[in-house]
Amino acid sequence: MPTGRLAVWWLIASEIVIFGGVLGAYLMHRLGHPEWANQSMHTSTWKGALNTFILLTSSLSAVLAHNAASRGDGKRAAKLLWATIGGGAAFLVVKSFEWTAEIKAGYTISSNTFWSFYYTAAGIHGLHVIAGMIVMMFVAADAAKGKELQRVENAGLYWHFVDLVWIFLFPLLYIAK
């Protein structure tokens, strides 16, 4: 297996336990605290769903970029990567509107342990989104010149993982009320 991809798999493996720690802790508290339903009802399901949609779509463009790169089409791969980065940016914009509304309504990170988990889990995930976007900018710049095309797949793998984490965060933080 190419070294880069192998390393990304190991990175994902070690990220699984980091998110596993936060989400495991959240899950245990959530199951023991039925009263958190009164807090989670104030999260905005439609904003969460919109963000899920955005991330799923950006994952699609990431995998299409990989497809283009494996055909050797660096230009198209770069374009699709920029579309993915745009998806990440849109995700962050939605997130910032969402958080602004919640903080204005008085739900801050220190209001209650539910909100602490809400901001912490989504915040760590958000940092991964930002990191993925930065990595993809470098990869896209190279890919546009036809260089380092194997990195398109590696960046995409990481992005899919970020998407996966969100797929679980969405029901945990938004849907379960």
Binding site: S14, V17, V22, I109, S116, T120
Partner: peptide, 20 residues
């Protein structure tokens, strides 16, 4: 991993007043 997650949570307890 879980300890890195825990360290972030403890850091928030120290600096942001959360109560993990």
């Amino acid at each position: 991993g879980p300890l890195i997650a825990g360290a972030i949570m403890l850091m928030f307890d120290q600096q942001l007043g959360t109560g993990f």
